[in-house]
Design a binder for these strands. Structure first.
Length: 634
RNA sequence: GGGCCCGUAGCUCAGCUUGGAUAGAGCAGCACCCUUCUAAGGUGAUGGUCGCGGGUUCAAAUCCCGUCGGGCCCGCCA
């Protein structure tokens, strides 16, 4: 499935390559180089441009202008070609606006909600993990970055025909949970008078203070140990409390329109004995060793010197071994992660059972690993995507190196770490331990952020007095609030560190979610006023293309024709910012179009309404990839 | 000591994978545009040593080397 822009680009490349082959045989310029030389120039130069003549000039010992003009003259002409001209050494292609418009309009109308999609994934399974927040506090604005990235990347991959499994990892056996189990026995009982994750997060801050006062380290490590034994009071309490917390966190997720397919619990990984199987593979393959002497004697370690081929990170003069299993026989985090990834990639068959936790608002059931329940076929993924903070790059590298050394280099290569910069606030850290997420005036939680955004949207919607129905105002405002937040998060590339500010997170103008939604609503209104009723079914419907010009309407047509290439780029780089960027380009081009050309004015009406229609389809498809919905009016 | 990331307009960012024509948006500020399809909008002007210094190249924000500033990682923590 090629997008219109891609087809034209490929055609242009092959046409140029044919001329080059004929005029300059043996030049060494191949098709890939020609394709690479093609770009979209400023509109005064045309619609597509190739710089190949500049490259050829040295080989051919002629000026770029001479070569470009030679290529322009000899280039094959088709119906689609209006003109091919040389300018400044470039070969510039100008498309026939009527013919190309028809191609784009047909492509959008044929594909509809699938316009921009492709089959690149070919049904391969992607297991994507996000946000893996510890189950002892509400999602804060940093966790939200993870969740929104994961959600949007999932949508993009799904659009590219991957079979996407959205997985969340729940660490119910971590130190933080042990601390809160300990706290529940030592703190005075307080009633749960608010959302459970919020309540638990606040308790956790109190627990931390008390732990320090009482010097409770030894007691807590005892709790942690007992938590790992199935059936103990501690294990049951940990799981129970974690589940309540995750349920509350998932209310937040649902409010943002974020859903998962399966939760994997650390306690179930332990019970399913994944670790033993994984370690056996590690030892048998020689990836894991037992040093007889040195500081790590008695441990099971990975030899970092053997991992040098996997990156400079392992050329560390200070560390030559990574401990995988401690001398007391307990497993480190890395060990568990290795086992888990062996499961994700289908290297280990786990005896996971799954409980159906019920239908979510998106119509998909949520499953959770459990001690008993159904058998399901989660895992066995072709590609594993982990949305994890940049701080964990090194552990992720170790994981991949270890899988390679254990004999699975291809599987290791199919693990993708989408690393994102941490979100911070002026006042400091968002840590759960210190309670930094609680803020001073307003808590930095995903819940509060959404509330604030929706409050602001409600004020703006009421103020504009465009809508009468109050329930409609409320539902529209909710969408707008969500959109504002999502767009602000997803428009920046993930590695960029972010210092959170309320004013920029709640941006409603310019490059923003609400601006895009406004553009959509505005377009819809034009069609409504114009009495648009679908592409003209008349025999002579092709006549509408006579109205196409090379003005702002064609700028919009070209941009719409390029949606598919944008999606491919986003999927290839696991990045959402290219979509956001494109959407801004699209909406502002649309604004220029309708400001400069009256849609319902004259005999061009049919054509222009159809253009507005395909614009709406494209915009809504692209916004959907960011998890942003559309509204009819605002 | 070693490694990774970030540095582009006053502010927030895109562009860097794969080098190409005068480096793009938004916000703020300036001047305009609501009797004409919704002003959450549009137009115009202003604003840039692409951190800095070298190198490669016909051509560098983009590639290479060095350097400065900021952040992160390198544990028998998770």
């Amino acid at each position: 499935m090629e997008s219109p822009s891609e087809s034209v680009r490929l055609w242009f490349a092959s046409a140029i390559a044919a001329v080059v082959e004929k005029k300059y045989p043996g030049s060494g310029i191949d098709n890939a180089q020609v394709l690479n030389s093609i770009s979209v120039p400023k509109k005064e130069f045309g619609d597509l441009s190739s710089s190949i003549a500049i490259r050829l000039s040295k080989i051919a010992k002629k000026s770029p202008r001479e070569i470009a003009s030679e290529i322009s003259t000899a280039l094959e002409r088709t119906d689609l070609v209006k003109e091919v001209l040389e300018a400044g050494g470039y070969v510039n292609l100008m498309l026939d606006e009527q013919k190309y418009s028809k191609i784009v309009f047909d492509a959008v109308n044929t594909a509809g909600k699938k316009y921009g999609a492709n089959h690149d994934g070919n049904g391969r399974t992607v297991l994507i993990e996000f946000p893996a927040v510890n189950p002892n506090k509400p999602w804060h604005i940093g966790h939200l970055r993870n969740a929104l990235l994961g959600d949007s990347i999932s949508r993009i991959l799904d659009f590219c025909s991957y079979n996407v499994e959205r997985e969340d990892y729940i660490d119910d056996l971590g130190l933080q949970i042990a601390e809160i189990v300990w706290g529940s026995r030592n703190l005075p009982q307080e009633p749960v008078n608010k959302k459970f994750d919020q309540w638990l997060g606040e308790q956790y801050v109190k627990v931390n203070r008390m732990m320090e006062e009482r010097n409770a380290k030894a007691e807590i490590s005892e709790v942690l140990k007992r938590m790992e034994e199935p059936g103990t009071l501690e294990a049951v309490a940990a799981r129970d409390m974690s589940m309540k917390c995750v349920r509350a966190q998932y209310e937040t997720a649902a409010a943002y329109g974020i859903y998962h397919d399966v939760m994997v619990w650390e306690s179930d990984i332990v019970h399913a004995k994944l670790l033993d199987k994984a370690l056996k593979i590690g030892i048998d393959s020689g990836a894991l060793e037992r040093p007889a002497q040195g500081k790590n004697a008695g441990c099971l370690v990975m030899n970092l010197d053997k991992a040098r081929e996997f990156g400079k990170a392992f050329e560390n003069p200070n560390e030559h071994e990574k401990v995988i299993v401690r001398s007391d026989g307990t497993a480190t985090y890395v060990a568990k992660d290795m086992a888990f990834h062996m499961w994700k990639l289908g290297i280990l068959d786990a005896d996971f059972r799954y409980a159906n936790l019920g239908m979510q608002a998106n119509g998909v059931a949520l499953y959770s690993t459990a001690s008993k329940g159904e058998e399901m076929d989660f895992g066995r993924a072709d590609i594993v995507v982990n949305i994890i903070g940049s701080a964990q790059k090194y552990p992720q590298l170790i994981l991949k190196a270890m899988l390679s050394l254990a004999g699975y280099p291809k599987k290791a290569a199919s693990i993708v770490h989408v690393a994102y910069g941490e979100v911070s606030v002026d006042s400091g850290s968002l840590s759960g331990r210190s309670g930094g997420w609680m803020g001073e005036e307003k808590a930095y939680t995903a819940d509060v952020l959404l509330e604030e955004a929706q409050k602001k949207a409600l004020e703006a919607t009421e103020k504009s007095k465009k809508i009468d129905d109050s329930s409609k105002i409320s539902s529209i405002s909710q969408e707008i609030g969500k959109a504002a937040i999502k767009f602000e998060y997803l428009r920046v590339s993930p590695e960029k560190p972010v210092v959170f500010s309320w004013s920029s997170a709640l941006n409603f103008e310019g490059n923003s979610g609400p601006y895009c939604m406004y553009s959509y609503a505005r377009a819809g209104r034009i069609l409504k006023k114009g009495g648009y009723s679908g592409m003209a079914k008349r025999q002579d419907s092709d006549l509408i293309y006579k109205s196409a010009t090379r003005g702002q309407d064609f700028e919009l047509v070209k941009l719409i024709g390029g949606a598919g290439e944008v999606v491919k780029k986003a999927a290839a780089g696991y990045t959402t910012s290219v979509i956001a960027d494109y959407v801004i380009d699209l909406t502002s081009t649309f604004s220029r179009f309708y400001e400069s050309m009256h849609v319902l004015g004259d005999e061009s009406k049919e054509y222009r309404m159809e253009l507005v229609h395909i614009y709406m389809t494209t915009l809504s498809n692209m916004l959907a990839l960011l998890g942003i919905g559309t509204v009819d009016e605002m």
